[in-house]
C-alpha cells in the first residue's frame, strides 16, 4: 500500500482515477492547480486505487495524502 502525497500547495483541479481503477507507474492520477498552472501528479507504482482522500476543488498542502494505492 502506498500513499500518493501532494508535492505542492494548491487546489485539486481534476481527479483522473476512481476507486477500484488499476493504475500503472507514471499514470496521471490527479491534476493540481497552483499559481494558475496545472500540475499533473503521477502514480508511483503499479496497483489498484483503494481510496481517494480529496475531491475536486479541495485546497491541499504539501505532504497531504491525495490517493491511496494498494
Amino acid at each position: 500500500m502506498a500513499e500518493l502525497t501532494s508535492p505542492i500547495n494548491g487546489k485539486v483541479w481534476k481527479i483522473l482515477v476512481a476507486v477500484g481503477d488499476k493504475v500503472e507507474l507514471d499514470d496521471e492520477m490527479v491534476i493540481l492547480e497552483a499559481l494558475k498552472m496545472e500540475t499533473p501528479i503521477y502514480s508511483e507504482e503499479n496497483g489498484t486505487v483503494s481510496e481517494i482522500r480529496v475531491k475536486e476543488g479541495d485546497a491541499v498542502n504539501e505532504g497531504d495524502v491525495l490517493v491511496v494505492v494498494t
Binding site: N9, M37, Y42
Partner: peptide
C-alpha cells in the same frame, strides 16, 4: 515547466 519536462516528478514551483 522546464523542470518537469526533464523529470516529471520534479515539482519546482514552490
Amino acid at each position: 515547466k522546464v523542470g518537469s519536462e526533464a523529470n516529471r516528478r520534479n515539482y519546482l514551483l514552490m
